[in-house]
Amino acid sequence: MAEDIETKIKNYRTAPFDARFPNSNQTRNCWSNYLDYYRCQKALEAKGVDVLPCDWYKRVFTSICPLSWVQKWDDQREDGTFPGKI
């Protein structure tokens, strides 16, 4: 299974269609994948498991989110003012 995940991540080109976000406005998709990445990391690190599967979420949000948003959210997480629940 780990090989399958690694292969998918290596062959990744752009965010695939997500039925939860059918509209052309991908703001919620961006936000959800950003949160999912850090939630995944937190959960897997707590279990002591490899966090490689979480890279999928990071690749998705970095391909659809504006860099300024990601930088702002990263700064907010560092400052402890991030509005999302991770």
Rank of each mutant, 00 (worst) to 15 (best):
N11V: 02
F17D: 12
N33W: 05
F17Q: 10
Q71Y: 07
N29W: 10
D75G: 06
P22V: 05
N29C: 06
P53V: 02
D55I: 04
P66W: 00
Y37T: 02
W31Q: 15
Q76K: 05
K47N: 13
L52V: 12
V70W: 00
R59Q: 15
I86E: 14
E78D: 13
Y34K: 01
R28C: 09
V49W: 08
P22D: 10
A15D: 01
V51N: 08
E45D: 11
K10E: 15
R39T: 10
R20Q: 13
G84P: 01
K8W: 09
Y57W: 14
Q76W: 08
R28D: 15
W56G: 03
F61A: 02
L52N: 08
T14W: 10
K47V: 05
V70E: 14
I9C: 09
L44V: 01
C30I: 01
P53G: 05
T27Y: 14
K47L: 15
D18V: 01
E3T: 06
F82T: 02
I64G: 03
V70L: 13
A43L: 14
P66D: 07
Y12V: 02
I5H: 04
S24Q: 10
I64Y: 04
C65A: 06
E45C: 01
Q71N: 13
L67S: 15
W31S: 09
R39D: 12
V49S: 11
W73H: 02
F17A: 10
D50V: 01
L35N: 11
D36G: 11
D36F: 11
E6S: 11
N25C: 07
A43V: 10
N11A: 13
D4A: 13
D74G: 02
K10N: 14
W56K: 08
D36C: 06
A2F: 12
D55L: 11
F82A: 10
K85L: 08
S68M: 04
A15N: 03
D36L: 11
D74N: 14
R59P: 00
R77S: 05
A15F: 00
A2N: 15
Q26C: 06
D36A: 15
Y57C: 03
D36Y: 11
P22Q: 09
I9Q: 15
I9R: 05
P53Q: 06
Y12I: 01
D75I: 02
G84C: 07
F61M: 06
A19N: 07
L44I: 01
W31G: 02
N11T: 06
I86A: 03
S63D: 15
T62C: 05
P22A: 07
D55G: 10
A46T: 07
D79G: 05
T27Q: 14
C65S: 05
S63Y: 00
S68D: 13
A2T: 06
W73I: 00
F21S: 03
K42G: 03
S63M: 04
T14N: 13
E6K: 05
W73V: 01
L52D: 12
K47F: 04
I9F: 08
R77P: 05
V70N: 05
E3Y: 04
T62E: 15
W69S: 07
V49F: 11
A2L: 12
A15T: 09
A43W: 12
R20W: 07
S32Y: 12
I5G: 01
F61Q: 04
Q76I: 02
E45M: 09
L52T: 14
R28M: 14
Y34E: 07
K42N: 14
R13Y: 09
R39G: 13
V70D: 13
R59A: 05
I5F: 11
N11R: 01
K42M: 08
G48D: 07
W31K: 14
